Computed example of a mutant assay.
Amino acid sequence: MGSIKEAIRSAQDIGRQEDVDIPEWGITVDVWGLPSGDWEAYQNKLNKLRFSEGKGGAEMNVRSNRAEIIAKSLREPGTDKLVFTDLAEGISILSKKNQGTVDGLFKLIRHLSGEDRDFEQKVKDAEGNSADGQS
């Protein structure tokens, strides 16, 4: 058995969903969840926005932040190739798309990343996935 560190490093714990149909855009993509570092960066941006809401730009910034999460998650079907290799371009494009479609993708990415579960649910899920009944 390898070290605990190596087990953590090699664990494939971020979800993926293949062949996600987006009829509004006439495409099918693979959607990958994101690692904790991307979610922490997103949360940090949201916290900063709370302090600047009085300046009138908070709603667009939140939408752009969601667009960033989505741009980092969309992949060419059957590959690990990002749809938006230029992140700034992806954010620009996605920020101008229908909010309902963007929100649906954002919710899917949250789910694939485990961001939509509370701590107790995450512990239960981890216990169910542990080898030999260990937790």
Rank of each mutant, 00 (worst) to 15 (best):
K97A: 12
I109A: 05
S95K: 07
D118C: 04
D118R: 07
K107N: 15
S113E: 01
L112V: 12
R110C: 14
K124E: 07
V123A: 10
K124F: 02
L105I: 07
L112G: 02
K97V: 10
G104S: 12
D116G: 04
L108F: 12
D118A: 13
L108C: 06
G100E: 02
D103A: 08
E120F: 04
I109W: 03
D116L: 13
G104Q: 05
K124T: 00
I109M: 02
V123L: 08
K97C: 10
K107D: 02
T101A: 14
T101F: 00
K122I: 00
D103V: 11
K96T: 12
F106A: 03
R117G: 09
G100M: 08
I109P: 11
R110K: 15
S95W: 01
T101D: 09
R110Q: 15
G114N: 06
K97T: 04
D116M: 04
I109D: 12
G100L: 02
R117P: 01
L112H: 00
G104I: 11
D103L: 11
Q99T: 15
L108S: 12
S113M: 01
F119T: 10
K107Y: 12
L108V: 07
S95Q: 06
S95M: 06
L108R: 07
R117L: 05
L112F: 05
L105F: 06
Q121W: 08
D103N: 15
L108N: 06
K124P: 09
K96P: 02
N98L: 06
H111D: 05
Q99I: 09
E120V: 03
